[in-house]
């Protein structure tokens, strides 16, 4: 459903991505592993349309979206779960959920959201950022699911969260995957990546240097962790 071909990205004169090829299929979870500054977040920002200084092609659901503005990509079915969670302080929990428009018949009702995320149900009138970090992460994921997005771009969803919360996120990703949603997951947590994803791209200095399956990833975990500088 997502096909990125020879994507280059620049910040002014500095090239941040070099000839990146990435593919995410229906119901596939793909991780993007790389150390800080490798270009992971830049890549996601190019995909969602917030970074426009690019060449190459981004195809989504068979359509070239390289020139589409961000809001139209979201409406086409891309859901973004930002690395800082992107919860609005000036909106209540429920408003955070209702802000993005529904984009497909896959869209969740509020009732379903609150059943799947009971911790949000009790706080629906609370300010978005009064939630704990883990709850905010749930809210960010729930917000993307509520729209009915068919591709989730998740930027470090497990970062800084307690193991029990990380385990829930893992479950959610598995459930979402089972419904045919594609997930592109940015992760530094190789262990977490290995438990949820089908394939892994290793990004280094703006280039995809390796594509691994989960068996490779687990076998070479020590070496990769060293590469990631963790």
């Amino acid at each position: 459903m997502l096909e990125v071909t020879a994507l280059n990205a620049w910040y002014g004169e500095a090239q941040a991505l070099h000839e990146v090829n990435v593919r995410v299929g229906e119901g596939e979870v793909v991780t993007l592993v790389g150390r800080n500054g490798a270009g992971k977040t830049t890549l996601v920002r190019c995909l969602i349309g917030l970074h426009r200084q690019v060449s190459g092609a981004v195809c989504f659901l068979g359509r070239d979206v390289t020139r589409l503005p961000a809001h139209q990509r979201a409406r086409a079915g891309m859901g973004w779960v930002q690395d800082d969670r992107g919860i609005y302080a000036s909106l209540t929990v429920e408003e955070n959920l209702l802000l993005p428009p529904s984009v497909s018949e896959r869209a969740w009702t509020l009732k379903r959201v609150y059943e799947a995320f009971p911790e949000l149900a009790g706080r629906r009138k609370a300010g978005g950022t009064t939630l704990s970090g883990g709850e905010q992460q749930m809210l960010a994921i729930a917000r993307a699911l509520r729209t009915g997005a068919c591709l989730l771009l998740m930027d470090e969803p497990s970062e800084g969260l307690a193991p029990v919360v990380v385990a829930r996120i893992r479950e959610i990703i598995r459930e979402v995957k089972a419904t045919g949603v594609g997930v592109l997951l940015i992760e530094q947590n190789v262990t977490f990546a290995a438990t949820v994803a089908d394939r892994h791209y290793l990004l280094s200095q703006g280039r995809i240097v390796e594509t691994l399956d989960t068996a490779d990833l687990q076998r070479r975990e020590g070496e990769l962790l060293k590469h990631l500088g963790i």
Binding site: H71, W80, Q82, Y88, A89, L91, L99
Partner: peptide
Amino acid sequence: GMIVRASTEKPELARALGINV
């Protein structure tokens, strides 16, 4: 009002969430 508040607080995110700011 919700859209105005959202685009005031985080305009870029609002666009990425499908709001035509």
